[in-house]
Design a protein around this nucleic acid. Structure first.
Lengths: 214, 214
DNA sequence: AGCCAAACGGACGGGGGCGTCCGTTACGGT
DNA sequence: ACCGTAACGGACGCCCCCGTCCGTTTGGCT
């Protein structure tokens, strides 16, 4: 175990690093991972070189930028597993993950994308999926989660959820909530006979402008 | 009405135009709209200039490339409207559109993206949405489509469906079918009490490699 | 106050994609 | 067979973006 002696870090460096991370969260959260590094640098009030000194590559910046959201995801899974009602835990998990993905546009991409190896997302993912598998098993036992469900279905829906992210922020979270509600409806074994579950408000969606129009 | 006298079109030009469209369908279908024009040109065995002479801009090429799929979509809507069972028509519509979107990777983007104005997608869209609204009204009257449903929900799901397209072709159509099934499940008012609807096979999804890794 | 190293940032090189120019090719009508 | 013209395609300019280099600034310790 390497004991880091508190190598004197210059204050401006530490400040800039923090400002860069804030800027990255804002920019990538609003414009997605395709936002130029220069935009982050401008937003942080530093030069490109400074940005690259702190984070040698764009992916390195991604990893640090979304560390917090990753922790939030872990927490959501943990909470879902410890919920005394598995089906309620399962539903809450879906809602929380969708909310997280909807609030920063880049995070869903970072989360659902297998990066070359920079991040240890892979390991993460394996453990997480295992946990969800267990949760699903329990929720199926109560008869509330439909029997045909497999964890890949959640992955499927989360990948689909990414399709909502090319949408203005305001509509995005509303759309995301409605999508989550439909997802839960689709996964549930048998909606209350007669009265269907009420849904959150429907978003007024407008089409994307524009995927390849420089 | 301008009567086009059959301006003598040289045979090689007509051949090349056809080859370019075939190439465009193949390339954009497999790699998405972000595929370089040069790739289409190479695949068609022509130079870039020839491509641009036939289609002055990338969007113009899009418009022609997906004309056939657009007609297929119109046909699907028409069929759905004339189905004697509105709910069956509605479900078939969803399945057919998803199938179309899954089979060529670029089409979904072209379909769900509001292009600056090149295509008359906007008009299309308005008429189509109106038709679907009517269909939904009928399906709700039979009590099989859930009361809360609004057409924007279909748009929502179709936008989400785009998220599945960064997936290898084989998995893509399987994933798409399963997604369509879940969508229908979510939209249906009350699945057969007791026995949930069986689903198509679940795809084995692998994560995307990679959105911004040149 | 003075010094030194760490940190900064403007400018640069490399790569890729879109759309265009102009010299060359080859179709097709005579 | 010939010739005019439409069509072709390699090469070019332009722009955007990633990542790097080097001269300059500035924090912090003595």
């Amino acid at each position: 175990m390497t004991s880091h002696l508190p190598q004197p870090v210059r204050s401006d460096a530490r400040d800039n690093r923090a400002r860069i991370l804030d800027a990255a969260r804002a920019v990538f959260g609003e414009e997605g991972l395709s936002a130029p590094m220069r935009e982050v640098a401008r937003h942080a009030g530093v030069g490109p070189a400074t940005l690259y000194r702190h984070f040698p590559t764009k992916q390195a910046l991604f990893a640090e930028t979304f560390a917090e959201q990753r922790r939030a995801c872990h927490a959501a899974v943990r909470d879902a597993l410890t919920d005394s009602n598995p089906w309620h835990g399962f539903r809450s998990l879906i809602e929380r993950i969708c909310e997280l993905h909807a609030h920063s546009r880049g995070f869903a991409d970072a989360f659902m994308t297998a990066f070359p190896e920079a991040m240890d997302f892979a390991a993460d993912r394996e453990r997480t999926l295992h946990a969800v598998r267990e949760l699903a098993r329990r929720a199926q036992k109560t008869g509330q989660l439909r029997p045909g469900f497999v964890v890949d279905d959640l992955v499927l829906m989360l990948m689909a959820h990414r399709g909502l992210q090319d949408t203005p922020r305001a509509a995005r979270v509303t759309a995301s909530r409605r999508f989550a509600a439909y997802m839960i409806e689709a996964f549930s074994a048998a909606p209350a006979t007669g009265a269907p579950t009420p849904l959150p408000p429907a978003p007024r969606l407008q089409l994307t402008h524009s995927p390849s129009t420089p």
